[in-house]
Amino acid sequence: MWDYERKLMYPVKIKNPNPALAKMVIAQYGGPDGELGASLRYLSQRFTMPDSVTKGLLTDIGTEELAHLEMVGALVNQLTRGTNAKCVKESGFADYFINHSTGVYPANSNGSPFNAMAIAVSGDPITDLNEDLAAEQKARATYDNILRLSDDPDVNDVIKFLRAREIAHYQRFGEALRRVEEKLTDNNKFYMNK
């Protein structure tokens, strides 16, 4: 089970509201390569991993993704504070605002709600770990795109932290995959059926 700590993993303190940027950032809250999907993917895949190391890694990264989800939620919340009707209309935020006001809803930047179709849980450790490697790169690429379009240094500082974590996770998943593959050649090709 989980305990909650009332702190963000990395500080989020945005000075200037910017609903247009909030609409881009929300992709990492409820979009296909966002933090909600990441957490759900790893915390669901861990049950059928073949050893304690891989179960532990997926538990720990899945937990960290929940902390990232909270940070992205804080970004969206702070970017939409103190806004007004004119700003909402001019920033292209109106279509989101009509349904959610400034609530933080798990959706992609085009408004599509979170969908578990974006994640896979195959029950096969090789398949799942390869999916995880791809997922980390897709999230990194999305953060790169946010950095290309954002000119707010407060937001970029947070995005750069999250982007760096995708790279760290990719490294760890690579090590876990190599470990599982080595076990498979270890006189027991049915190791993963344990």
Binding site: R46, D51, S52, K55, G56, D60
Partner: peptide, 22 residues
């Protein structure tokens, strides 16, 4: 919790001797 692990290597958190709750 992971932080409960003692100083003895290997890292007790992922030791095969400690079963996951499921």
């Amino acid at each position: 919790c992971a932080t409960d692990s003692d100083k003895n290597s290997p890292f007790a958190w992922v030791d095969d001797g400690h079963k996951w709750p499921w």
